[in-house]
Design a protein around this nucleic acid. Structure first.
Lengths: 251, 251
DNA sequence: GTTTCGATATCGGTT
DNA sequence: AACCGATGTCGAAAC
């Protein structure tokens, strides 16, 4: 799996190593050490020489990491072309995308080590607690939102976007439901308001709006009230009992 | 810089290595090989055993990468606690955050290699083409948006959010300007519409709304027209001449 | 600590 | 290819 490791490689040595590892495909390539990074495309950036970790994945995606944080300092999503050259005695990697046109350029000023290794496509991955999952759960049992609620439609398109969930309440009024998997802010309130307004413009009867989320920020709740809309607390993850079971199983 | 490398370490060997490298601080720790990953917090996920690359940075941030994409399969922003144990003959890393409460758990089923290396805080980093930069440029010379325009205020708070740029046109009308550094979609149009509406409710005179961005989607442009608002093309990066100069300098 | 907002957002689905 | 919306968004600044 670990294909090769170079320590403090010379520029031409590094260039050759990278060229081969990248040509081959299928390998994750890393270089750590003193690098300088230039980016130009949607924006532009310059990182002076400093300690960074470069990672090139088999799909051509590139990332340059500093010592902190999940997000790379510089990156390039799946690239169309990755080249390695040697310029003025320094190995240089150039990663290019065409749409949008972007170029990332990494100069290996003082590489400490370089390595390449395989990373086969892994096993299954399951994520719970997405908005899509919430939607499915509430669609199959709308009474979780409110007793007497019946489903009318999902992702109903309006002229201002798709309504997450449209239902009818016990009194026959239409209910527009906006879902958020996390704490809802005022943007969610505005979305809901737009949908409700849109439905009212084509529906003569009563129309209610409900924001369904695990929590809501105080300002958003205020605005919701001011607009005559409602909030309903709904958990993103399965109920407490099941959640505990899942956690017990995992930890 | 490269502190240590282990190849196909035994569970207890790996556990000891990780514990020491993490206790020490200041090092980036990597493990590649067959891993299984469990996450529970805002959501929950399970990744069956597969080939992944684990990276733990000195700040306690953790990421697990698969063979594709810039985004990790699983991650944990700056954690409050990272522990390593050996359970049932398998080394396990547990990274925990308290706010929000989240736990990431990585089991090293068949580690291929593990390593630790230093990554000192790097040199300077400069990013061009941000919205903040656009705002500053347009504030210092509003005539770029429209001849005769004069600045009134920046980031003016309304009851529905902050207005990027407020100006007055040659005829004395107030102009609400919404900035986007990339292609603007209908969400930007709705934001602008809200701001304009808010200003009109407190200002008796004429109020115009301008969406200033490098580009706009067709549906957004339609909606903009329907609402009586305007679009003005503004580049995020410095002008073509300067941009060329920057690119020439870099590439 | 909470809230808000930008981001080279990335990524996937749909048209 | 463009568009749209979710994201365990992350991360920083303002409050």
């Amino acid at each position: 799996m670990l294909r090769a490791v170079l320590t403090r490689p010379a520029p031409d040595e590094l260039a050759e190593f990278l060229a081969e590892a990248l040509r081959d495909g299928g390998a994750v390539v890393q270089v750590a050490g003193e690098l300088e990074v230039f980016y130009s495309g949607r924006a532009a950036s310059v990182a002076e020489a400093g300690d960074y970790l470069l990672i090139v994945k088999p799909d051509g995606s590139v990332q340059v990491h500093g010592p902190r944080g999940v997000k790379p300092l510089n990156w390039q999503p799946q690239t169309d072309d990755v080249r390695v050259t040697c310029e003025d005695g320094v190995a240089v990697l150039v990663a290019e995308r065409f749409t949008p046109p972007e170029t990332l350029r990494v100069g290996f000023v003082a590489p400490e080590f370089a390595q390449a290794f395989e990373l086969k496509d892994g096993g299954s991955f399951v994520l719970l607690g997405t908005e899509a999952e919430m939607q499915a759960a509430l669609a199959s049992d709308p009474s979780v939102i409110e007793p007497g609620l019946t489903l009318v439609d999902l992702e109903l398109p309006t002229d201002v976007g798709g309504i997450d969930l449209l239902a009818r309440d016990a009194s026959g009024a239409l209910v527009v439901v906006e879902l958020k998997r996390g704490r809802a802010g005022h943007e969610a309130v505005h979305q809901l308001a737009r949908y409700v307004e849109s439905v009212r413009s084509v529906w003569p009867g009563a129309v209610r709006g409900i924001l369904a989320a695990p929590a809501v920020t105080a300002p958003a709740l205020n605005r919701l009230g001011a607009l005559g809309l409602e909030f309903r607390e709904v958990s993103a993850l399965p109920g407490p009992k099941q959640e505990t079971a899942v956690q017990d199983a995992l930890f």
